[in-house]
């Protein structure tokens, strides 16, 4: 059994009469990158706010490292909200120092770490720049540093790449991977599915305040596969080949097939060979998370 850094069990939160989080449970495996997905207004932010201790759940339990969530835990979490801002008139160095000290670092410790990160991100000369002089993407780097400055074992990143150019996206992405290597558990919230697919190992999909899907990305894809196969071939397609499977898409020397109910991939391949085709490539097409996401949300 995989150890969990965070467990949510039956968490419910309502505002006024609106149920924002409806009996949500999931486990975040330790040291993984975990995708918290869902359409806008699904309740992601409410869940994150409960985890970070900004609000409290009406009912349900939350454990961090097996201990019920308490006042000490927020310091072990680094949270970068989707809607984020900085004090425009403050200088970058001063601002980072302020945020770092609020996370409980001593002045000396904070300064050392800030200098380290600024050097790493090649922005050492920004210390005396005012925040308002920076572009949105540049401010995001500052925010990322502020989020990880106290080296929290759990990191929650809400749309960390929004507004970043490809170069800076990669910079942050590499940093996320490195942190994971160092043992940090990361909750990554987004609705950009291609990023999730690339980065996350586990996901939970929230819709209408409920947990609709949870598990390892590969398992989920396996679970939702529809037995599509893509075949590159040489030769010609014989008449009657369509009796054995449904041709979804046919291009020059390449077809997409859907296997008939109960047909295994070996049987499919065998019958293709029986038609005298020379197969150059044969692989099963798993659904993208995007497709699964849209399908689940529409249901």
């Amino acid at each position: 059994m995989i150890e969990s850094v965070l467990s949510l069990r039956g968490v419910v939160k309502s505002y006024d009469k609106k149920l924002a989080v409806d009996n949500v449970s999931f486990e975040v495996p330790k040291g993984s990158i975990f995708g918290l997905l869902g359409p806008n207004g699904a309740g992601k932010t409410s869940i994150i706010r409960i985890i970070t201790g900004i609000t409290r759940a009406d009912t349900g339990e939350i454990f961090m490292d097996g201990v019920p969530l308490n006042n000490r835990h927020p310091e072990l979490i680094g949270y970068m909200p989707e809607e984020r801002g900085l004090y425009k008139k403050m200088k970058v160095g001063e601002h980072l120092l302020y945020l770092a000290r609020l996370k409980g670092l001593s002045a000396k410790q904070a300064k050392e770490r800030i200098l380290h990160w600024m050097e790493k991100f090649e922005i050492s000369n920004w210390w005396n720049k005012k925040v308002e002089e920076l572009s949105k993407g540049m401010q995001q780097k500052i925010q990322f540093i502020a989020t990880i400055i106290h080296a929290p074992p759990l990191l929650i990143l809400d749309e960390p790449f929004s507004g970043l150019d490809p170069v800076n996206t990669n910079l942050i992405k590499d940093e996320i991977y490195q942190l994971k290597e160092q043992g940090t558990s990361i909750i990554f919230s987004t609705h950009r599915m291609e990023q999730v697919e690339e980065i996350c190992e586990h996901i939970v999909l929230i819709n209408g305040g409920q947990n609709v899907l949870e598990g390892r990305v590969n398992d989920i894809k396996e679970q939702f596969k529809e037995h599509y196969f893509k075949i590159d071939y040489t030769g010609t397609l014989a008449e009657g080949i369509g009796d054995h499977f449904n041709i979804i898409q046919s291009e020059d020397k390449s077809i997409m097939l859907k296997a008939i109910e109960g047909q295994s991939s070996s049987e499919l391949l065998r019958s293709l060979l029986n038609y005298g085709l020379e197969i150059n490539a044969f692989h099963e097409v798993l659904p993208t998370l995007n497709q699964i996401f849209i399908r689940q949300v529409k249901q």
């Binding site: 900004i54 310091e75 979490i77 909200p81 809607e83 801002g85 900085l86 004090y87 996370k103 502020a146």
Partner: peptide, 15 residues
Amino acid sequence: EEKTNRIVEVMISSV
């Protein structure tokens, strides 16, 4: 101002 420029969102997780 703090609410509008969303600095609260950043602050509120540590204070």
